[in-house]
């Protein structure tokens, strides 16, 4: 192990312990590590974003002599929008930054209208259109699958009913939305349990790092 690897391990271990110290209570060590994290990640994402997105999409194309002149001129539009965004630094002309914001909002709205329907709503509906009668060689499996398909369709329908606020929840709608809340609660509980387990596995990873890579007390 060279010096930088060793130093890196000690640094990572120190920062890990500093963050975990918050379990005792808020303390300067934790705050120090927290501030280091904010500073390092902000700069990290800038470098990554400019290298992965802005460089290939703007800088490389603008500097490439083979890239068509017309396309280069078109690239001036987002560049000007970007510069307009920076006009927020000058209060007198800060209002101009609303133009690129309007472009990004319009783009997000335009994409949401089309891509959401095509990429999310239609596939979700398609995935819910199960056959309610499944026939296999085993009648028990057929019955189970049929019941489960009906169960999922019923669950999706009642969950949507719960979020239907255009009519007062009375009568049949009330019954439907009550069943919907049962599905929602089971779903939230399961998602919660799943999230906790993901976090626990991260914690195990950090503890393993401390005991294995840093202290070397376990294999």
């Amino acid at each position: 192990m060279n010096f930088f690897d060793l130093f890196g391990t000690w640094l990572a271990a120190g920062l890990t312990v500093a963050i975990l110290s918050f379990l005792y209570r808020d303390n300067p060590l934790y705050k120090f590590a927290e501030h280091i994290y904010v500073g390092a990640s902000a700069a990290f994402w800038v470098v990554i974003f400019w290298y992965s997105d802005v460089k290939p999409m703007l800088i490389d194309r603008a500097l490439d002599p083979q890239y068509p002149l017309g396309e280069k001129l078109i690239l001036l539009i987002p560049t000007i929008f970007g510069i307009m965004m920076l006009l927020r630094w000058f209060p007198k002309v800060a209002w101009i930054s609303r133009w690129p914001i309007a472009f990004t909002v319009g783009m997000a709205a335009g994409l949401a209208l089309t891509a959401t329907v095509q990429g999310y709503i239609v596939p979700q509906i398609k995935a819910t259109l199960f056959p309610v009668v499944v026939i296999t060689k085993d009648p028990l499996i057929s019955l189970w699958r049929s019941l489960m398909n009906i169960f999922v369709i019923f669950g999706v329908f009642t969950t949507i009913l719960y979020f239907y606020f255009s009519k007062e929840h009375t009568g049949l709608l009330k019954v439907g939305s009550r069943i919907g809340i049962i599905f929602i609660m089971v779903g939230f509980g399961a998602s919660f349990g799943y999230t906790i387990m993901a976090r626990i596995s991260l914690l195990i990873g950090r503890i393993y790092f401390l005991l294995h890579s840093w202290l070397g007390v376990i294999d």
Binding site: A108, A109, G110, A112, L113, T116, V117, Y120, I121, Q124, I125, A127, T128, M148, F151, V152, I153, F154, G155, V156, F157, T158, T159, I160, Y162, F163, G180, F183, I184, V186, G187, F188, A190, S191
Partner: peptide, 22 residues
């Protein structure tokens, strides 16, 4: 089953909301 059904219902509602907002 129940988790997937609830998630699907919630997602559909969310996406419909996103469309209305757009």
């Amino acid at each position: 089953y129940p988790q997937m059904a609830a998630k699907r219902g919630i997602l559909m509602g969310t996406y419909l909301g996103a469309i209305a907002m757009s």
